[in-house]
Design a binder for these strands. Structure first.
Length: 183
DNA sequence: CCCTGATTCGC
DNA sequence: GCGAATCAGG
């Protein structure tokens, strides 16, 4: 499989997002992690903030017999802040294990991508607040990976009844029925 | 052994 | 340009 514009674009996005080469390769499909790394270099976009990100434990390897992607849990609600802080432990959520808790990449991308703008938008722009900046009236929807640099919270205003802004509340409290495809 | 990215070099 | 093989490291 070659590098189509779309695939290259996805590569750039995921790489920038902080995913490892193997994870990206896995997502793209048809390419090895070496291929991804090679491409990354040719594109001259390696310098990713490689601070706190090193070897990910990986829940399970090929040990999972023939049980691959099962996609069961509908876990849409993000981890609670408390968890995000203390659990900052060594458990990187992977898409691999069927039970891996993972935030929708698309959701994340949308929120981070948009530059600061006004309100009234369908999708609120994250105010990028850190943990300590959260108050009772700020949306506590986490954006990004707690273990990676750039992690922050939505921070937009929320109703006193909800920990999230309207938009994220609508995402968080969806029934566990039909969510969009995860892959 | 698992993983990570970096580099080389034949294709 | 591509990516397997290899290297260096956690």
């Amino acid at each position: 499989m070659g590098w189509t514009d779309e695939r290259v674009e996805l590569l750039k996005q995921l790489w920038t997002e902080g995913l490892s080469a193997s994870q990206i390769a896995d997502k793209l499909g048809g390419v090895s992690r070496n291929a991804v790394i090679g491409k990354v270099h040719r594109l001259k976009l390696e310098s990713r903030a490689k601070a706190s990100n090193v070897a990910a434990p990986v829940v399970e390897r090929q040990a999972s017999h023939h049980l691959k992607e099962v996609e069961t849990v509908e876990m849409v609600q993000p981890t609670r802040i408390v968890a995000a802080r203390s659990v900052s432990a060594r458990s990187m959520p992977r898409t691999h294990g069927a039970t891996a808790l993972k935030m929708e990449p698309e959701e994340v991308a949308e929120v981070i991508a948009e530059p600061q703008r006004q309100s009234g938008e369908v999708v609120p722009i994250a105010r990028k607040l850190s943990l300590v900046q959260l108050t009772e009236s700020t949306c506590k929807w986490p954006v990004g990976d707690p273990l990676k640099p750039g992690f922050h919270f939505c921070g937009n205003g929320s109703n006193e009844s909800s920990p999230y802004c309207e938009y994220h509340a609508s995402l968080a409290f969806q029934p566990a029925s039909e969510r969009r495809r995860v892959r």
